[in-house]
Simulated scan of single mutants.
Amino acid sequence: MKLFVRNTILLPAIALSSCGHGHKEGEQVELPAIQVETQTVERKEVPVFEEVVGTVRPKKEAQVAAKVTGRVLTMDAVPGMKVKKGDVLARLDVRELEAALERAEAALAQAERDVTRFAKLRESNAVSEADFEQAEARRQMAAASVRETKIMVENAVVEAPFDGTVTRKFLEPGNLASPERAIFSMEDSSLLQLEIGVAESLAGEIELGDSFHVEISDTGFDGTVSEISPSADVGSRTFSVKLDLPNEEALRAGQFGRAFLPRGMRDAIAIPETAIISRGQMDYVFVAEDNTAKLRIVRTGSSGDGSTEILAGLEPGEEVILSPPSVLQDGQPLTGASEAENYPR
């Protein structure tokens, strides 16, 4: 890299092209020499990436259903509501279950009286040991029936299985709920993944724990492979791979994302991004040639790590100007040359 030292005072570009101020009409205004930094264009190995598209999905999601069958009495949550684990989402009509619980408790009370009575009769040998054991078994079965019915009554209250957000509701009050019919769907949006479909040629090179660059809504992240499907999808012939994403406020389930999977290295020309000037749909660079700045149209390729690949417009050995000043013009002279130090290539 070279440093061109400016010997004259910089003038605004607009003043350089104006008439008057001591110049005759049609007289060409001489541009002052300007100081710039340059870097020699070189061919080097650059990484090749395969871009794979996917969708952001919650790592934890669930269809929430009642554990018992019954009519929905109240809906205590709506889509979009954030809930904590154990919060009540819905309640079922439990009148029939409560009646069943009363019957079970009555049966248990009777069974306990029978056991007490048979125990006294056994002491006087009025009943056999087998009769007493049957009474005790009836008591135990009645107690189990009470416990079971109590659990069913408790399960008529539908609770959130984890901290998260209610995303959809499928039933309304009055509808019949059952373990086979979901009432709500939930997701934990604090834990998101990018799910991508990877071709067979790439899937074999991916391992759990690998980290890849991911772009979502023009923002870059690092995604870590947490799941790899052992079999390919029959329709797409791709393997599902899930990458854990950082907990970022900008990320939302359902967003479109891209993952960049490495495919090795190749020989290419790459220059610092700071050397490139974008105007509309065109990209330009300034080249230092014979102590003069020359504006050059270039065709750019992929970018990464502060560098951009140049597909056309530059050759190895040329000197490209880094961070060209806004006043720099095509044909402007550069003066002096010395090696600039400590600039990354």
Rank of each mutant, 00 (worst) to 15 (best):
F4P: 00
F4T: 07
N7A: 14
L10R: 06
P12G: 02
A13Q: 13
A13T: 08
A13F: 05
H21N: 07
K24I: 09
E27I: 03
E27F: 02
E27C: 10
L31I: 04
L31P: 02
A33D: 14
I34T: 09
I34A: 13
V36F: 02
E37K: 05
T38S: 13
V41N: 01
V41H: 11
E45D: 01
V48G: 02
F49D: 05
T55I: 11
K60Y: 15
V64H: 03
A65S: 05
T69I: 01
V72F: 14
M81A: 10
V83H: 14
K85M: 08
V88P: 00
D93V: 04
L97A: 03
A99F: 01
A99Q: 07
A100N: 12
A100S: 14
A107S: 15
A111N: 05
E112Q: 10
R113W: 11
R113F: 04
A119T: 15
K120L: 14
K120T: 12
L121Y: 09
E123I: 14
N125W: 00
S128H: 04
A130K: 11
D131L: 09
F132N: 06
Q134K: 12
M141V: 15
S145G: 13
E154I: 13
E159K: 12
F162S: 09
D163Q: 13
V166P: 06
R168G: 02
K169M: 09
P173D: 15
N175L: 01
E180A: 15
A182S: 12
A182L: 09
A182R: 14
M186R: 06
E187G: 01
D188S: 11
V198L: 08
A199H: 15
E200T: 03
S201A: 12
S226P: 00
S229D: 15
S231I: 14
D233A: 14
S236N: 04
R237L: 11
S240P: 00
L243M: 15
D244K: 05
L245Y: 07
E248M: 06
A250V: 12
A253V: 10
Q255K: 05
F256T: 11
F256E: 01
R263M: 11
R266A: 09
A270Y: 04
P272K: 05
E273P: 08
M282T: 10
M282H: 06
Y284C: 08
D290S: 04
R296K: 11
V298F: 07
G301A: 05
G306C: 03
S307C: 00
E309N: 03
A312Q: 12
E318Q: 03
E318G: 03
V320T: 11
L322W: 08
S323W: 04
G331Y: 00
G331I: 05
T335P: 02
G336C: 08
A337M: 06
E339T: 11
